[in-house]
Amino acid sequence: MSVTAGVVAVQGDVAEHAAAIARAAARYEESVEVLEVREAGLVPECDVLAVPGGESTTISRLLHDEGIAAEVRDHVAAGKPVLATCAGLIVLSSDARDDRVSPLGLVDVAVERNAFGRQAESFEAPLAVSGLEEPFPAVFIRAPVIDEVGDAEVLAEWDGRAVAVRDGPVVATAFHPELTPDARLHGLAFFE
């Protein structure tokens, strides 16, 4: 049976998530169809959903304007998997500590936007992630950190601060697994 994977596509690195999902599916010998979600009505057709990196203020605004926000809530309430990266983490958090973003409250964490600083402070580094045997090549771009964890499991920390969590069906990362050829996190979120 084929898996229908949605990528929220109102803004951000959508094609990169689509490609990462295809790589993960190949690893798990699953067949997958990817839908780009730029309007309401598509999320209910999706078995799994990726919320990409981009600008959280823009994504948050368009998710609400287009009526997609409520559908993402229903998707999570139905226990269907989600992978949210960087801006996706901010948008799905329960507190973005910034009134320019209206978070959906689907991951029980508070985040700090741009916590590492501006683009000059962006970095890549191997990161130990719970559930993965070898470190993951993590790419942090103007990344947030998770500075308060509620009812969620921390999957990875950088310098004592949480940068990946699991809350029910949602895996959320402060970094961008979709920017590397390594499909393990998409596999962990969607196919395990």
Binding site: A9, V10, Q11, G12, D13, V14, A15, E16, G53, G54, E55, T58, C86, A87, Q119, A120, S122, F123, E124, V139, I141, R142, H176, L179, T180
Partner: peptide, 16 residues
């Protein structure tokens, strides 16, 4: 300052 980080920053602007 790697190419991946520079190009990655640009990729985050897509659709914007």
């Amino acid at each position: 300052g790697t190419d991946l980080l520079k190009r990655g920053f640009a990729q985050m602007q897509k659709g914007g």
